[in-house]
């Protein structure tokens, strides 16, 4: 399976300068009403997702050229080591973790998993997210 050849593949580090307006815009798009989130003092709980597209290689990490009609998001696992705040300078590194074929009532399904680690300017871990996509 070609996707398994990606296991261990890493994408180059990506740097993010976290701006209060990024945090505000994200919180409002999620319907948040908690003042610290809406004011951008602290990131809403799922904000790490907003860094995934760039932080995980702008779509290059997952295998997309597959003999399946559809691809959807199947799982996320997140660890937040400390809240993301405005002024943070974060570095994302990402790695392709796994590709597994499973039989299901819908036929054969391929699950791909990759993870992204965020570190701050001092190299301390800020958060980690592992996401899986299912193709069927």
């Amino acid at each position: 399976m070609r996707a398994r050849a990606r296991i261990g593949m890493e994408t180059p580090p990506v740097h993010f300068h976290i701006d209060r307006s990024d945090l505000r815009r994200y919180a409002l798009a999620c319907g948040e009403t908690w003042p610290a989130y809406v004011d951008g003092d602290e990131a809403a709980p799922t904000f790490i997702s907003a860094l995934q597209t760039e932080g995980m290689g702008a779509g290059q990490l997952f295998e997309a050229d597959l003999p399946f009609a559809s691809m959807l998001h199947s799982d996320d696992t997140v660890e937040v080591y400390r809240p993301i705040r405005p002024g943070d300078v974060l570095t994302a590194t990402a790695r392709y973790c796994d590709a597994v074929l499973k039989d299901s009532t819908r036929g054969l399904m391929l699950f791909q998993t990759a993870e992204m680690l965020l570190r701050d300017g001092e190299g301390r871990a800020v958060g980690r997210v592992a996401s899986s996509l299912v193709s069927f």
Partner: peptide
Amino acid sequence: AHLCRAATAVFAPDRWVLDRYAVRY
């Protein structure tokens, strides 16, 4: 994010931090 909002209505963010979650779609 909406599911987190349902939970933070009880576990208010000034007292609680959601530091780990696992979601299945």
